[in-house]
Amino acid sequence: MTLLTSIVVMLLLCLSAAHAQQERSDFQLNFRPFVGSVPLQLDTIYTLDKNQTIEFSTLKWYISGVELLRNDTVFFAEPNSYHLLDVSDEHLLHIPLSHLPSGQFTHVRFYLGIDSATTTSGAFGGDLDPTRGMLWTWQSGYIHTKIEGKSSRSTARNKEFEFHLGGYRSPFNSLQTITLPLPSSREVSIKMDVLKWINSIDLASVHHIMSPGEQAVLLSQQFATIFRVEAR
C-alpha cells in the first residue's frame, strides 16, 4: 500500500513537473543602440552632416518594472525587475524573462529609470548595487540614464558632453514609462537611435547635466521616444 502510494505520488510529481516545463516559455528583449542606421559602438567616431563628429564613451540606462500586457491588462510582471543595460558589454543588453505563463501577449511596458519608492528604500544589490556607479552620492537618487562622449558640436572643454539624467522628487521626477507593441516572436529587438536623441539637444549650450531638474526631465522624456520595436 505504502509502495503503491509512493509510486502514485512520484507519477503525479513527474506529470506536474512536465506540465510546469511546458508552461515555462521564455521571452527575451534585446536592446540595440544605433547612431542613425549604424550600430553604436563605444569609443568610435561617427561622422555626421557638415563634417560634424560624435563619439560615445559611456551609455548605460536602467530598465525596471518590466511587464507584458495582453491589450490593456497585465499578463506577466517580472518580479524584482531591475536591469542596468550597458553598451560596454554585449551581454548586458538583454533582458530574458522566464517562467512566463502560456498564452499570448501584445505589448511590453517598462520604466526607463528607477521608481521613487525603490529610490527611497535604502541599499539594494545586483544591478542596483552602489558599486555600479549609477547612484548620486551627495544627493540620493539613481542616475536613470548615463550618456557621455565627445562631439564637435559641444563647446565644453575637450568637446565633451556628459548627461547624468535622473531625479525622483516631484516636480523633477524624470522616470519615464514606455509601452511598445510586440510582434508574436519570442525574441524581440528594441532599437534605440541615440543620434535622434542627441540631435534634439543643442550641444553648444547644453553639454553637461549632472543633477535633477527641468532639463533632466526634458531630456529623459526625449530619450524615452527613441525606443522602437524592430520589425523582423
Binding site: T119, T120, S121, G122, A123, P130, T131, G133, L135, T137, W138, Q139, S140, G141
Partner: peptide, 28 residues
C-alpha cells in the same frame, strides 16, 4: 536632507572630495 535613507548616507562622505575622496567600487 539630500540623503533619503540611512543606508545611502555613507556614500556621501566616502565620495566627497573634501571628505574621503574614494569610490564605492574601489572601497569594495
Amino acid at each position: 536632507g539630500a540623503v533619503n535613507h540611512l543606508d545611502m548616507q555613507a556614500l556621501a562622505p566616502i565620495s566627497n572630495p573634501q571628505e574621503m575622496d574614494e569610490t564605492m567600487t574601489h572601497v569594495v
